[in-house]
Nucleic acid binder design. Structure first.
Lengths: 243, 243
DNA sequence: TAGTGGTCTAGACCACTTC
DNA sequence: AAGTGGTCTAGACCACTAG
């Protein structure tokens, strides 16, 4: 293993973190693809010349961060964006008296343009960089509950389709463009619905709706998507865990 | 170590989880108090007749759940509800262009009564069980931004003061009543502000505000507090991490 | 200098899955 | 039966804190 030395003693990087960084690199480089099993612990350990325990500690951390999925007796897999996984991990809107369901989408438009100031800032792009904009509605339990607007850096999504955009976008980003969303941050506010959104959501203009402002990034931290979801909370809520 | 056997082989409980359960019990029983250091790993290992590695795995899990704080070279401590910790862990409202700050409180009222249906359900109490109700306002950056209402089971809070309730409630619960909040769930909605809340928040009646509905529980899962916070998001947001 | 948690190793055995 | 991850042990050494 390379030690990754750079400077003074205060900088100390444990071996297992170096192993982890190397394995993340392999996933980021698409040497190991989502859904595939990675080599068994003893194999990786022998290849890198470290003990199995060290590899294990790296793998355990990656599993804790939902980058890998470990299954006793079967193997260790690169995580996939199954609907079930997204539902559990990225989708915090749940119907009030029921179980979480993955919402259906109705595409409204896909357009190309250049980033405005807010988009450049949100996605850390150069001014006027080309972007793709998507508008769509989402149904929860058969009722339109969300009107959302997305902005993507066009450079990362060559030949993005103008229609037939799938419901599960993160799965689509991975399958079609090799981009895996690994995390993000959301800021939630209460705002008055625009007359346009209100009409779609079956509300009167000015009714209170949730604005969920999300910036999602890839494994290496690159910002991939800026999403603004206007959500009626008549029959559903945004949930947060305190731990 | 007791094996905790009860039935058939399918039920398998690793040794380190039994250790963890026992240590949590000691904290729950207040044998080890918040802020105190617990015995060093080799001491606990010898006492329980397990290896240090097994104790370590239990302690690491508890540290990951914020029940313990480990400090290299110093020791392992039972977590305290410092302002800094609550701010980071339980308080998800942040000012829009600044750093998170712990909000000041203005107490409005403390009353005693019997639980209504909603309160009984939220706190899993018997119908008409005695409860304590608190109403207060909270300031972020000098501006009243939150109007909140709390309900507590009176049985757990004997001789609760009618005034001079501190700003940091979770610290107060721990110091005065020996109750440590360890987690909870929040459901967030957008609603129209009542005329009373709107007046306190400096909004017009009916303006959109965030309703944050929180149920907080202790280490052993007992429900301790039901809190409804009506929050103006003019200058702050509710943040959520996606991981 | 002594004591703490943090890392790393090596090896044994267990539980689960698949063939 | 073979192969995987999961648990448990024992011991060495490192990094950090305190006296």
């Amino acid at each position: 293993m390379a030690d990754g030395f750079a400077g003074a003693p205060p900088g100390f990087r444990p071996l297992y973190r170096q192993v982890k960084a190397l394995l993340i690199q392999r996933i980021s480089d698409r040497q190991w693809l989502p859904g595939q099993a990675i080599p068994a612990e003893p194999i990786i350990a022998a290849e890198l010349g470290v003990s199995q325990g060290t590899v294990r500690k790296a793998l355990d951390e990656m599993a804790a961060e939902n980058v890998l999925v470990r299954r006793q007796g079967r193997g260790t897999y690169v995580a996939r964006h199954d609907e079930a996984r997204i539902l559990f991990q990225f989708f915090k809107i749940v119907p009030d008296g029921g179980v979480p369901v993955f919402p259906d989408s109705r595409l409204r438009s896909v357009t190309q343009g250049v980033a405005d100031a807010a988009e450049s800032r949100a996605l850390a792009l150069a001014p006027a960089a080309p972007v793709i904009r998507i508008a769509r509605l989402r149904e929860i339990a058969g009722v339109v509950a969300i009107s959302e607007y997305l902005t993507l850096p066009a450079a990362l999504f060559p030949d993005f389709p103008g229609e037939d955009v799938p419901n599960n976008l993160y799965d689509f980003y991975a399958a079609r463009f090799g981009i895996t969303i690994s995390g993000g941050q959301e800021r939630v506010k209460a705002v008055a619905a625009s007359s346009d959104d209100a009409a779609h959501l079956g509300l009167v203009a000015g009714a209170p709706v949730l604005l969920i402002d999300r910036i999602a990034h890839a494994l290496d931290g690159t910002r991939i998507e800026w999403r603004r979801s206007y959500c009626s909370t008549e029959a559903c809520s945004y949930v947060g865990e305190l731990k």
